[in-house]
Design a protein around this nucleic acid. Structure first.
Lengths: 194, 194
DNA sequence: AAATAATGTTAAACTAGATTAACATCTATT
DNA sequence: AATAGATGTTAATCTAGTTTAACATTATTT
């Protein structure tokens, strides 16, 4: 398995010795998922955090009316998981499903605790990861309150140009919190006003 | 200063020895704020996380139109800060302002780093705090997407009964992401249908 | 006690975005 | 090549929530 993507990611936050790198890789699990497979299912306790090597996932909430609400897309060099469920070891509120064949590295609950005691620096790494996730989540709340759907769509395009090209439009609508019909309308308005 | 509220809070997550408690309290700063004073101002780099001993604060974002969007209220035994700014040491997106005279304990950036190296367990504590904040933030996104304003208001009342009684209604409307007029309408509907 | 500021209510007119439904295009499978 | 399934578009109608504006009530200050 190619260690490089994960190590490059980790190096942005902390420095590991060779020995520590070896310990790390001895405790993780490599996995291959096919398109449409679920990594986490609503109701299960989520017992892993995953670093994506290749592929794409969506995390979504299914409401009582059976409507999907996408919370986030994840691609290479990002994480995916129901962090809330993982952290508190309670049933997941969300589903994580692969939109493409996806290769990833899994950190399970137990091994992460072991890793924290063997390499305390990792506690810092995962604190930083959660911090970043939190900041992104806070900014999203503000965007949803203070911007129109058109403005949110433009920001999405700018922030995640790679994702826009890989994901069907009706899922982007779900991520933006609008219907696919309304996104279609926004797009045609943008084309006309060009 | 009364150490009890903070220690009781911390004990829910980690256990400190007497010596560690002393180190902790030697590094923190007690502060008194008056009603309407700002703890954090949009644009400043936020250099503290605060544990509230008494009082009440609002954290809000001011948009280009000059409209306030309240992200969270905090009261006794909760934290307040622009965590995003604090974490990344970038200018704050939010303001934190006191709604009542407020007494709190400040952890500044530098002292927190010192504390982490003297008491590594604290790294875990603050990871947990950020994790909880993150989970709450994620749940809020979902609520805003999948529930009506009336449903959100009922959940708010149930979740934060203490806050509802302490805070003017127009601020609750701002927190819910609706106008004060519409909240007024919702309330009168609820009274009629009782 | 009066005056001012802050907060809350009501109602009419308006708009962003949802719903429904019919149709168009693209893609995968036989 | 033909069919079915998935995805995207357009337009009419509808609704949750906004805006505006006038008024009511409650605190706060003099």
């Amino acid at each position: 398995m190619n260690r490089k993507p994960l190590l490059e990611y980790i190096n942005k936050y902390i420095n590991l010795t060779m020995e520590e790198e070896d310990i790390l890789f001895s405790k993780i699990r490599y996995r291959d998922y096919l398109k449409d497979q679920y990594i986490v299912q609503q109701g299960d306790v989520c017992n892993s955090v995953c670093f994506i090597l290749s592929g794409c996932t969506k995390m979504f909430y299914m409401d009582k009316e059976g409507q999907e609400h996408i919370v986030i897309f994840s691609i290479e060099d990002w994480w995916t998981s129901d962090l809330g469920s993982f952290i508190s070891q309670t049933p997941a509120d969300y589903n994580v499903q692969c939109l493409e064949n996806t290769q990833l590295i899994q950190f399970t609950n137990n091994t992460l605790e072991e890793l924290y005691s063997e390499i305390p620096k990792l506690e810092r790494l995962f604190r930083k990861i959660v911090e970043r996730a939190f900041v992104a989540s806070q900014k999203r709340i503000i965007r949803n309150f203070s911007l129109t759907a058109k403005e949110r769509y433009l920001i999405f395009k700018e922030t995640y140009p790679k994702i826009e090209q890989r994901v069907p439009q009706y899922m982007i609508a779900s991520y933006l919190g609008i219907t696919k019909e309304f996104l279609s309308k926004i797009k045609s308005q943008l084309i006309q006003n060009q």
